[in-house]
């Protein structure tokens, strides 16, 4: 479903050009569980931003579900993000003045879903993540694990086909982190969700069926199958 061809991404830093991605080719099948690993500066985050249409490649082509999305305008790319891609971030990125339910509801508001349907879907989603009694709380009244679960509810509320998780446990203690990663993996297995996890934690990265190691903006290793 995802096809990257010769993706390049250059950044101008001062008068130097940094090549964050160099001719990256990558195919991801529907329902794959894939981890992107590598040291910082290896380009794994940049690659995830490009996969999530948050960033534009300097060169190359990105095909999503058979459609070239590289040349789409802002509104069309936003629509793709809205309908097909969910994000989970290291720092949760919940809106501080909104309640858990309102945060989870945001993508539906942006999609123009009517309020009654929004309420039902948010309630169901929070319930499935064990957050029903937290729906009226603001993020600062929630623990880290709860916050990340709200963020997962938000990412999944639009029923995307791809979930992009950027260091989803990076800001959590061990037990909350495990809880979150299991939640995400459950979504992958139960919904057939394509899951891409960016991490520098090898233990977490090894859990994926397909593990990609990046160094210097290039894919160095691409391992499939159970590692353990």
């Amino acid at each position: 479903m995802i096809k990257l061809r010769e993706i390049e991404r250059d950044f101008a830093v001062g008068d130097q050009v940094v090549h964050a991605l160099r001719k990256v080719d990558l195919d991801i099948q529907e329902g794959e569980y894939l981890s992107l690993m590598g040291p910082s500066g290896s380009g794994k985050s940049t690659l995830m931003h490009i996969l999530g249409l948050l960033d534009h490649p300097t060169a190359g082509a990105y095909e999503l579900d058979g459609r070239n999305v590289t040349g789409l305008d802002d509104a069309a790319q936003a629509a793709v993000r809205r309908n097909k891609i969910g994000f989970v971030f290291q720092f949760f990125h919940l809106v501080p003045y909104l309640t858990a339910a309102e945060n989870a509801e945001l993508p539906l508001v942006l999609s123009g879903i009517d309020p009654a349907e929004r309420r039902d879907r948010v309630a169901a989603s929070l319930a499935s993540l064990g957050l029903s009694d937290r729906s009226g709380h603001r993020p600062d009244q929630l623990s880290g694990g709860q916050r990340q679960r709200v963020a997962i509810a938000r990412a999944m509320i639009s029923k995307p086909s791809v979930l992009l998780a950027d260091e989803p446990t990076g800001n959590l203690d061990r037990s909350s982190g495990n809880e979150v990663i299991h939640l995400i993996e459950d979504l992958h297995t139960s919904h057939g969700l394509t899951l891409v996890v960016v991490t520098h934690d090898p233990e977490m990265g090894e859990r994926a069926q397909r593990r990609i190691h990046m160094i210097d903006g290039q894919i160095r290793e691409d391992n499939r199958g159970s590692a353990a």
Binding site: G52, L54, D74, A75, A78, A79, V80, R81, R82, N83, F87, F91, H93, V95, P96, L106, P107, L110, S111, R154, S158
Partner: peptide, 14 residues
């Protein structure tokens, strides 16, 4: 950060 999030969630520039 909130604006960045809204964009990630699929809010176009307009």
């Amino acid at each position: 950060a909130e604006i960045g999030l809204l964009k990630a969630l699929g809010a176009p520039r307009e």
